[in-house]
């Protein structure tokens, strides 16, 4: 092999100037935004001092009011379970009606808008509106999470239905099956497993969110948490936070087990 057959391909790793410019832009933006938001290193350091004080007051966690804690956690779990059940129940027809390969445009359009509306607002905003509509208490939380569930499961379920194979549908229709039979024997068997997957994920998400809707008065442990904050009752707060994290981890464990059953 002679020297002239070896071509010069240039350096092995070419400098990607676009990427470097991107990183520089991100850095400049961060500096600008930090200035805009009045986020400064001094404030951050001063905050760290507060944070240390705050953490010191949190230990040892105070579990002496465990009865209240358990009752609140029960209510949180109840909100999550009821909201998931109704949310799953409602999102099945909503998802079917919003699928563009099954329904005409004038049906899918309103249902797609409804799903988009459910998804765009954070559950807390729904919770505020429902607290106004049905008063303080778990009912507002349940209604909030039902809407959140429809937004999430409805969207993914619609997408799953739009990806199905249309051949079984055609076969059933050709043999004269009525509409409901087409849905039950051709559509659902193709998407039911994914639907169960989305539902179990949403059950988990609802449990997380039901710990929070109480902050605006919609029931569950969030109300107690917010009250403990406002009374500077930080050792009880630590107990609440620990129990919330334990609850979420437990539910994650259970949902992984459930997913294994349905695989």
């Amino acid at each position: 092999m002679t020297a002239d057959t070896a071509k010069n391909f240039g350096p092995a790793f070419k400098t990607n100037w676009y990427a470097r410019a991107g990183w520089l832009a991100a850095f400049l933006y961060a500096a600008y935004a930090a200035n805009y938001l009045d986020v400064s290193w001094i404030r951050f350091l001063r905050g760290l001092g507060n944070g240390a004080e705050f953490l010191a007051e949190m230990v040892p966690p105070n579990f002496s009011r465990w009865q209240l804690l358990v009752a609140n956690l029960m209510e949180t779990v109840e909100i999550a379970i009821i909201a998931s059940a109704f949310g799953i129940l409602f999102s099945l027809p909503v998802g079917l009606l919003a699928a563009r390969n099954l329904m005409p445009l004038w049906i899918t359009w309103p249902f797609r808008t409804f799903i988009a509306l459910c998804r765009s607002f954070h559950p807390v905003i729904f919770a505020i509106l429902f607290v106004k509509a049905v008063g303080f208490g778990p009912l507002a939380g349940i209604l909030t999470l039902i809407f959140a569930s429809i937004g999430f499961i409805g969207k993914l379920f619609t997408e799953a239905i739009e990806e199905i194979s249309l051949k079984p549908l055609e076969a059933l229709r050709a043999s004269g099956a009525p509409f409901m039979s087409v849905i039950i024997y051709a559509v659902l068997p193709q998407v039911l497993n994914r639907f169960i997957g989305f539902s179990s994920y949403q059950l988990d998400a609802n449990l997380r969110n039901s710990t929070m809707v109480g902050i605006v008065g919609a029931g569950g442990i969030g109300g107690t948490l917010f009250a403990a904050f406002q009374r500077f009752d930080y050792d009880f707060l630590a107990a609440i936070l620990i129990s919330i994290i334990a609850l979420v981890m437990l539910s994650e464990f259970i949902s992984t087990r459930i997913k294994k059953v349905f695989q």
Binding site: D38, G47, L48, F54, T211, F226, L241, I244
Partner: peptide
Amino acid sequence: LVSSRSVNSLVWALLFVAVFGPGPL
């Protein structure tokens, strides 16, 4: 990673408001 995800954003916000005071920081 798990503790970051299991504490809701509003609860994180409460914690950091207690630490840094109210505001965008």
